[in-house]
């Protein structure tokens, strides 16, 4: 069987979840590989959630939120941006690889951008192959 990436996407309630909704109502096609988890703010995405997703076998993790300056809680996404950069260093040193993590800013009107970034990320993970932690029968 060919490899189908399993991707966990953390979406913020105010912008990127709206974007995913927009993509749906506009009938924009995107791969069904993402599992969406909704947060009230992307600033709520604890690095620990990302780690746990990888440890439990996700092939890729997407973090999405409002554009910088548009956060519903003013500066929640500043924290997201910092955590993303920090996690990239961490995943790189750990050996999982920073490529498997993606941060995308999508406003509620950017359904097309959301669909395109999911498509691009899925293709990237497909090329990278399965999560190395999963090998060995997990």
């Amino acid at each position: 069987m060919s490899f189908e990436p399993r991707i966990v996407a953390f979406l913020c309630n105010w912008c990127s979840y709206g974007a995913a909704d927009m993509a749906g109502t506009s009938r924009i096609q995107y791969p069904p590989n993402v599992r969406v988890i909704r947060f009230m703010c992307s600033g709520r995405i604890d690095p620990n959630f990302v780690l746990e997703a990888f440890l439990r076998g996700a092939d890729g993790v997407m973090m999405t939120g409002c554009h910088i300056g548009d956060c519903h809680y003013i500066d929640g996404n500043y924290k997201t941006a910092n955590r993303y950069e920090f996690l990239k260093h961490y995943l790189d040193i750990l050996g999982i690889g920073a490529d498997r993590l993606q941060l995308e800013w999508c406003s509620a009107a950017e359904g097309l951008k959301f669909a395109q970034s999911v498509t691009a990320f899925t293709e990237r993970i497909r090329a990278l192959g399965p999560n190395p932690l999963k090998e060995g029968g997990k």
């Binding site: 690095p47 780690l51 440890l55 920090f86 961490y90 932690l133």
Partner: peptide
């Protein structure tokens, strides 16, 4: 989990 989550978090926090 392949890496105990306790250590995964500590490795992350202590990185800096």
């Amino acid at each position: 989990l392949p890496i105990p989550q306790y250590h995964a978090v500590r490795l992350l926090h202590l990185m800096e």
